[in-house]
């Protein structure tokens, strides 16, 4: 990075750290912060969408659809997220490739499962094996987002389901009395009002989502905890120009500060949104609290 970094052993403390903290490896750490932030930014709306459809189908009048929605909420909420992360990515990847295989290679006669191997035709591979490295990385990132969205979508569905039921019945009855169809009542009355009831639950979910990111490395995304572990580990002079002892405590301290400030900022922002939503509402929270 800096011109004086060519021979780290001769440097004083300040310059040594200036060089140490700007190695390619540390750049990967800083990049991973961006990775985590963008993953959160994409996952949150995706999980909300999953949650919305989950909640919608859980209160559907079509019986199988209702079962499906309720089963989705109950099963995913009942299982520790870590158990999902440990096998879900491979399962999703295989499911996609299997589907593409059925569509793209109808003439293929070999079995897809040969012993332990999972083999699809070349055209069905995701990403294609000729694809550049960044395509593979983007695909891995996409799978991680999808896994997070599925898992946290179930929690969001639970919150939204509760929120939809919390909208006072009188509101819906009035809408019906005005001759609105079920669909109209849902979109024009229920959905706009439910956010108020859903916000506390969704805020909590956002906090949990932030704190689940240390598990990202299970999904094959090199996140901040992965790099902090990797760089905090004692480094021998045979393998690096910057040998040091076991520094994991310092790296984890930095992570702690990062997470605490991130959750604090989120808390403040969410509190503001909540206050705005409550403004003018005749509920307990709008009054003396």
């Amino acid at each position: 990075m800096f011109s004086f970094c060519s021979d780290p052993e001769t440097l004083g403390t300040v310059r040594w750290f200036a060089c140490y903290l700007t190695t390619g490896k540390h750049m990967s750490l800083y990049w991973s912060v961006l990775t985590v932030l963008s993953l959160l930014a994409i996952t949150a709306p995706a999980a909300l969408a999953f949650g919305f459809f989950g909640a919608m189908s859980a209160r559907s009048h079509v019986l199988p659809l209702r079962w499906l929605g309720k089963a989705y909420i109950a099963v995913v909420r009942g299982v520790p997220d870590i158990a999902f992360f440990l096998f879900f990515v491979i399962a999703l990847d295989q499911a996609f490739e299997w589907t593409r295989h059925q569509i793209l290679c109808p003439d293929w006669t070999d079995p897809i499962r040969q012993g332990n191997d999972f083999i699809v035709c070349d055209a069905a591979k995701l990403p294609l094996s000729s694809a550049a490295q960044w395509v593979h990385e983007v695909y891995g990132f996409f799978l991680a987002v999808l896994t997070f969205a599925i898992v946290f979508g179930a929690f969001a569905a639970n919150v939204l389901f509760g929120a939809m039921r919390a909208v006072p019945r009188g509101q819906l009855e009035t809408a019906e009395a005005y001759g609105m169809t079920r669909r109209q009542t849902f979109w024009r009355v229920l959905v706009p009002q439910m956010w108020l009831y859903a916000l506390p639950g969704l805020s909590n979910l956002w906090m949990i989502l932030i704190k689940a990111t240390p598990l990202l490395f299970l999904l094959g995304v090199e996140d901040i905890v992965y790099w902090a572990r990797e760089m905090g580990a004692s480094a021998n002079r045979r393998f690096t120009d910057y040998p040091h002892g076991d520094w994991r405590i310092w790296y984890f301290l930095a992570l702690l500060v990062f997470y605490l400030s991130f959750t604090r900022v989120s808390e403040i922002v969410l509190e503001r949104i909540n206050r705005r939503l409550l403004h003018g509402q005749a509920t307990v929270g709008g009054g003396s609290r």
Partner: peptide
Amino acid sequence: RMGTEGAYPPWNFINDDGK
């Protein structure tokens, strides 16, 4: 595509450049 762990020196590890 060659799969490795990147955390087991001297066999394989991530060097200062992140490679």
